[in-house]
Structure formats: structure tokens, C-alpha cells
Design a protein around this nucleic acid. Structure first.
Lengths: 170, 170
DNA sequence: AGTAAAAGTTTCGCACACGAAATAATCGTC
DNA sequence: GACGATTATTTCGTGTGCGAAACTTTTACT
């Protein structure tokens, strides 16, 4: 595994990785900066903007949207509730479920935030030609497909629901 | 700003964003999984592998490599020192500087970890043809250049070293 | 030399972020 | 209709991750 690469190719690979990392970290920085202006943290801004759009969500649904664990989101909502930005309410159909929605104060705050962080990237991507965009998507999908297969083969481990065959059958 | 996009384009943009996010979060997941097998955390694995390659680094240099603040790295090194994986030493040339290097135990551990997390992505990227790689790099650079200019114009704020002209000169 | 500014690190307080265990409510099955 | 399995959320412990302030040493300037 890991055959030595020609030098030029290695540089390209490295630069691609760095660019992807740059784009991702920049997205977090932008979120944080926009949040700071509204006296919020990054994740809190994300939550406020999602709730403004959707109206109300269960905690699990919210976790899924922001790609975090429930236990993480519990903490974020705790702090937002403390600030009076959101309210928790037990669902009437299923009393295990907690519904989260913006308070009037939270809604007013949401409306004061003009730009969504992701819009910066949408803006940047739409500066590409339609062909470039297609090509970018095609190549990225190819890469992530390949990543998935490498992971399955060489890393694997917590494969979501794989029945872990710890030892061979006798 | 934010002209309404044609529907098809918007889908492409969304999918590109999701793919980039997938690749980034997957990289963290892989790092974490490889780390878990060595009884380490993600950042600790990264540090171990860097030190194995480079030998020794100051804390600042290390921070830069892993793209984190000094104060974050101080904590990581604290815990690694507690586990006996690394040692701190004051530099003799400049006594402000702290040199960090692996202990024999840390080095042995590093040698036991076969795959570097980034190798998964290098592997995936090298499955692209040379033309695809060039094209990917070209488009990504175009996107990040555009992101930079949007940020400068619409977000800005903590521009690294911009002489913040808070008010015009009298 | 003598001091002010700068550089390197740590400390502190806070907010994620995750996984494992605990808790509460619902569902499936008998 | 009781009981065990399942689902939704919270609690707990630990590890990042950041920015501001504190501390130490070095550098630059006079």
C-alpha cells in the first residue's frame, strides 16, 4: 500500500487537501464572525437561522441538521434557552419528544441577521461556469466514493450497523 | 445581493457544499478511529505523527502545523506529557521557547501506527487522472479566491493584519 | 544601560463535541 | 394489559478550541 508518488502529483494532492481545509475552516470563521456581531456563537447562529426558516423542530431533527450529537445540541439549546432565544416544549403526540422553537426575542434577532454564512460559499460557487460546477461536482463525488471504499477496506471499524464478526465462525 | 438562482444550479451548489463537508468530517472521523486504536485522541495522533517525522518542534511551530491556537496546543501537550508520550524542554538559544519531542514511549507508539489519516485522502485523490486532478485544483483555487474576495467585501472584520481604519484621518 | 515594545507560552473562562450511562415514554408482542 | 425492546432526551466525564489576560524573556530604541 502507499506506492511512492511522482513528485508533481504529490504536490497537487497536497494543495488540493489544503484548499479543501482552507474552505472548511474559512466557513467556520465566517459563521463565527457573523455570529459575534449578533452576540451569538457559531452553532447558535446556525440554530437561529434554521428555526427561522423551518419554524419548529424536535431536538433530534435539529441535531441531524447541524450534524451534531443530541448531547451536544442539548447543551447549545440549554444556553440559548437561558438567554431567552428559544423555548422547549414537550410534544403532545409523543411525550418523549422535545419541540424547539424561537421566542419572539429569538425571531427578532434572526431577522436582524442579513447574511447566512453559507451564502458566501454559494456566492463563490456560482461564480463558476455551469460546466465548471458540473465538473467540480463530478470529480468531488468520485473522490468521496473512493474515500468510502478505502475506508470500508482499510479503516472501517465502527461501520454503522455492520454485525461485527469479531472471530471467525468455528 | 443574493439573486435568486435557477433551481438546477442551486442543487449543484448545495451538493458541492455537502460533499466538501462530507470529506472534511470524514477526515476527522478517520483520524479519530485510527487514534482510538492507539488509545489516543485525534489531535494527539496528529501530534505524534508530526513529531515522528520532524523530530522536535517549538510549541508555536506545532500550533501552526495543526492549525490551532497556542492555548489549545498547550492543553494537548499537557495531557500527552501526563501520559509520558512527549517531553517539554526549554530552548537554550531562546529561553521563551518550549521544545517538544517524543519520549521513547511516544516514538514506539508512533511506529505502531501504520496508516496516516491523510493517506486515505491521498489515496482517493490519486485515483483521479492527472487531468482531473489539475482541473479539480484549478476550480477549487478559483472558488477560494472568490471566497476571499467576498469575505473582504461583505464580512471582513478581523482581517488578519489590516490596519483597521476605524475612523478616517482628520 | 534602561526601558518600552514584542514574542512565546501558559492560565482562565467559556462553549462546543462526543460517547456511555441514566431516564422517560412508546411500541410490539404475547 | 403487562413486559421487554426501542426511541428521544438528558447527564456526566473528558478533550478540544478559542480569545483575553498574565508572565517571562528577548529585542529595539534611545
Amino acid at each position: 500500500m502507499a506506492a511512492p508518488l511522482p513528485a508533481g502529483v504529490k504536490d497537487d494532492v497536497q494543495q488540493i487537501l489544503e484548499t479543501i481545509i482552507y474552505l472548511y475552516t474559512e466557513s467556520r470563521r465566517i459563521t463565527k464572525e457573523l455570529a459575534r456581531r449578533a452576540q451569538l456563537t457559531g452553532p447558535q447562529l446556525t440554530v437561529v437561522k434554521i428555526l427561522e426558516q423551518i419554524g419548529e423542530l424536535s431536538l433530534s431533527e435539529l441535531s441531524e441538521r447541524i450534524r451534531a450529537q443530541n448531547s451536544t445540541v442539548t447543551g447549545i439549546i440549554d444556553r440559548m434557552e437561558r438567554e431567552g432565544l428559544v423555548a422547549r416544549e414537550r410534544s403532545k403526540e409523543d411525550r418523549r419528544v422535545v419541540i424547539i422553537r424561537l421566542t419572539p426575542k429569538g425571531l427578532a434577532l434572526a431577522e436582524d441577521i442579513p447574511l447566512e454564512p453559507m451564502e458566501v460559499f454559494q456566492g463563490a460557487l456560482t461564480s463558476l461556469s455551469k460546466d465548471e460546477m458540473r465538473e467540480l461536482l463530478r470529480i468531488l463525488l468520485k473522490v468521496s466514493k473512493r474515500v468510502k471504499s478505502i475506508v470500508r477496506r482499510d479503516v472501517g471499524a465502527p461501520l454503522e450497523k455492520a454485525d461485527k464478526a469479531e472471530e471467525r465462525e468455528p
